[in-house]
Design a protein around this nucleic acid. Structure first.
Lengths: 231, 231
DNA sequence: GACCAGATGAAATCGAGATGAAAAAGGGAG
DNA sequence: CTCCCTTTTTCATCTCGATTTCATCTGGTC
């Protein structure tokens, strides 16, 4: 869900970020290795994948990767490298990168690689995520509902709504603290006194209600939110 | 159950405390070695584990550790140390630390280490704690009851209720003085003239009763409370 | 009967989350 | 670039559950 992108070329960085965002990932894009390390150090944000450019001002992508591994951090890493540095491939994989992509590349390829990483690490965006009577349709940005009492229906979602649902549905039945949700889905520098999460929950619940669909998101007072899977 | 966290970096300290609290530990977080020592000296609070940052204003984590051991206090200690001080590892373990974690680290790792310490010292949070017909479901914040007369049921708990039950269930059949429970589960600066414990017991008993489940907590007049395990 | 720990119920406190409206940010289309 | 519409965030309350306090009982002890 949350990706750390480290790329110093502004154009490319922006382009990648946009594509990823349009795929509904939450993206932190930083331009140099030192900032990247700061992000990684900030334990309170768990990234799902990292994308490192090989050449970077400050700490290089390669070194970031090595540092991660020396801390036993299993974060999947996709390395970007310029043409002509192909011989680095072995070095990169040795350093602990999980995959490797030569610039220039088509965005489709990047997405495909990310999807491939997903197979190893169970967290990533899956094309359709289901829980109980609900399933998320990634392609159409929508939620499919199959309640016995109703005819099946499709509810269109906004990006944030989709992200929230996806996060909860990855841990069906488990209580997720609101603070955790904010860490995962919102930008990190937020002042902690913000009720974005509550607000989003309200929008989501209201939308589901307007489609007269009973909301599968339960609030556990003082502890967090939970996606209910009725047995 | 109760953890002493000594960490002077505000961000990190807060982050760690939040994670631990969300795992339902009771956490005392202090920022310097002197305060930490005050907490440790106050014997009336038995900590289950201590987490010391190596570098601290005042007394260092290392020294705290040594002092503890020189007082023959076996409290399990997890030491946090910054990258580059890795050579200190031996020193740390010599000083009596039980484990050792290099910053930065993933919270998962911290929790894993705590769980590891648990194996040596029998007190820590276990994923599910059972006694007699009852078992605590840590993930769902609930109590599972399997009384022969009834069908199995799940009773949702509040955080405090959970903590109280967990504490009693760790010592099934043993009488625990109410004062001890207060020391373990409530903040230390409380005025001793408070019946929070009794109040909480009442709530707990009432809740169990409302699920028509006979309460496994017995009051031993003048001595304390006991979790009954019927044979 | 005085005394004490603990039990009890009602009431006060506290904080997290819910809410509705309004402001701000984005994103096209022209 | 500007206008318009949608999405997202903020703000200022409001509500409700969790927890604590308070004042009062109860049961047993000395």
């Amino acid at each position: 869900m949350r990706i750390l992108l480290v790329e110093d070329e502004a154009d490319l960085g922006l382009a990648i970020k946009q594509v990823l965002v349009s795929e509904k990932y939450v993206v932190d894009w930083v331009a140099d290795g030192n900032q990247a390390w700061l992000c990684l150090e900030a334990q309170w944000t768990d990234y799902t994948v990292a994308i490192f450019d090989w050449m970077l001002p400050g700490v290089s992508g390669l070194e970031l990767c090595q540092r991660l591994r020396s801390h036993h951090n299993p974060l999947p890493v996709l390395m970007l490298t310029a043409l002509g540095q192909a011989e680095n491939r072995v070095t990169g994989l040795d350093a602990g990168a999980d995959d490797y992509l030569v610039k220039p590349f088509v965005m489709e390829e990047l997405l495909a690689r990310l999807r491939a990483l997903q197979r190893r690490s169970p967290q990533l965006q899956s094309p359709t995520l289901s829980a109980g009577a609900f399933s998320l349709d990634h392609a159409n940005n929508a939620l499919q509902v199959n309640q016995e009492s109703q005819t099946a229906q499709t509810i269109p979602l906004t990006v944030k709504e989709f992200q929230v649902l996806a996060y909860l549905m990855q841990n069906p039945g488990r209580i997720i603290p609101g603070s955790k949700i904010r860490q995962q889905l919102w930008d990190i520098d937020e002042e902690p006194i913000s009720n974005v999460v509550a607000a989003q929950m309200r929008l989501l619940r209201r939308k589901l209600a307007s489609h007269n669909c009973e909301c599968p998101i339960e609030t556990v007072p003082g502890q967090g939110y939970r996606f209910i899977v009725q047995s």
